[in-house]
Computed example of a mutant assay.
Amino acid sequence: MADASGTQTVSDSAATDALAALSAAGVAVWLDDLSRQRLITGNLAGLVRDRHVVGVTTNPSIFQKALSDGAVYADQVRDLAVRGVDVEEAVRALTTYDVRWACDVLRPVFDATGGRDGRVSIEVDPRLAHEAERTAAEARALWWLVDRPNLYIKIPATQDGLPAISQALAEGISVNVTLIFSLERYKAVLDAWLTGLERARAAGHDLSRIESVASFFVSRVDTEIDKRLEKLGSEDAQGLRGAAAIANARLAYEAYEEVVAGERWKALEAAGARTQRPLWASTGVKDPSMDDTRYVIELVAPGTVNTMPEATLQAVADHGQVRGDTVSASYADAHGVLDRLAAAGVDYDDVVRVLEEEGVQKFEQAWAELLESTQAALDEARGK
């Protein structure tokens, strides 16, 4: 059911059995969206209460969409205009206000789970994706500005982002590593995470208070690879449509299991550290011919997070069929899918390179649009 604003309302708690089963299987259910409208109306609190939501992720595109609803931000925009702040300071004031509020809504979950969940993510300026020092500086600034223990700072997993990830963790900042597409880069992220924790331990930080997730993107992989399979046109190629993204994510979980079975991790665990959970992102199904819950149901594994657009969340609640762990016994099949894709002519390395470049570009564009619309709102408030 939608309210007058078009936001889904929460009314049927009986429909949450699949989400309860998902949680029981070890998957933390997070919402991939945030807006002041959700906060004002109590929608987010309702999803926490009735839909097993235990975390929230944001990104520049989400904020750009949220701030297009000028009415709920008008009072704060007017105050910012009166103060004469520039547009970048205004954007940070508007977005951190929402994230701080959401952190407060999720704080009971944070307390109940010992800090494991109840987290809200905010991303560094996407224009800094290839500047490690500035990314680390912005991570510190956002950590201070929001000033909530249940915050995650999102840092893109570009090659240049890896040192910033280690640096933030070394300083005790909890990090959501985002925009991961390739298995090779994910392994580098795991190394950056371990390095950051090792440096944090050396600096005397309490490792039990430093959390991290690694956001491995799912649906975009199928979108790009299926487009290439369509061009190849062979029967083998057509038979692989919709297979790549789930196989790729399952092999990421295999890589994760290998790392947390290793001695390097065991030493950190003994010092109180907690694992960097794999987080399945981009889980909304783009192809209408496919089951709209597949990127949730086919990626159930202990100690993971699935962050969903609300449409996907509601679809899982309505007709999701949770079958327990659908990842751990599938590694051989997943390797076979990637082998068949290579044999069919799909260049995996090129696919993930394109996806990373496009991911950064899309967030940069959303940020530019956010700045532009906020500047227009400031100008209007100033009577220009």
Rank of each mutant, 00 (worst) to 15 (best):
D79A: 13
V85A: 02
R100K: 09
S282R: 03
E380F: 01
Y186T: 04
L44E: 05
D86A: 10
A157R: 03
W265A: 12
Y331A: 11
R36G: 12
W265R: 12
A24Q: 15
A249V: 08
D17A: 09
G118A: 12
V259T: 15
D104N: 13
Q64F: 02
A270F: 05
A342T: 15
D147S: 10
D69G: 06
R100W: 02
L169S: 04
V337P: 12
S219A: 13
D318Q: 13
L299G: 00
S373N: 12
V305T: 04
V175I: 15
W193I: 14
A344Q: 06
L197S: 11
R134Y: 04
V91L: 09
A202K: 13
D104K: 03
A90K: 12
V29H: 00
D379S: 10
A381E: 15
F363I: 03
G115F: 04
D333G: 08
P278R: 00
A249Q: 08
I155P: 10
D287K: 01
E131C: 07
G336Q: 07
D191H: 06
G6S: 03
V218I: 14
R51A: 05
R220Y: 11
F110M: 08
L47T: 13
S35C: 02
M308N: 11
P278C: 04
L251F: 10
V54T: 09
L94Y: 12
Y186D: 05
P149K: 05
G172D: 13
A243I: 09
G320T: 10
R148H: 11
G172W: 02
H335D: 13
R38S: 05
A334M: 10
L371Y: 07
V354S: 14
S289W: 02
F181W: 06
V296C: 03
N59L: 01
V351P: 04
A25T: 09
V300G: 04
G26V: 06
T158Y: 01
F63Y: 11
H335R: 14
L268P: 01
L31A: 12
A137L: 05
D117M: 00
V221C: 11
E263S: 13
R148E: 15
A45T: 13
D12Y: 02
G303R: 00
D12R: 04
A317F: 06
D117L: 01
E211G: 11
E358S: 13
T158F: 00
D236H: 07
L371K: 15
E235M: 01
A344I: 08
V218R: 00
V146I: 09
S212E: 03
V352M: 11
S166H: 07
A141C: 11
V351D: 06
Q321F: 01
A315E: 02
E372N: 12
V296A: 00
A25E: 14
R209C: 08
T9L: 10
F217R: 00
E171W: 01
S234K: 08
T312P: 02
R185V: 08
Y97P: 02
R264C: 07
D291A: 06
A202I: 10
H52F: 02
R92G: 07
L194P: 05
G204R: 07
A200Q: 05
G26D: 11
S373L: 12
V354Q: 15
T307G: 00
G242E: 12
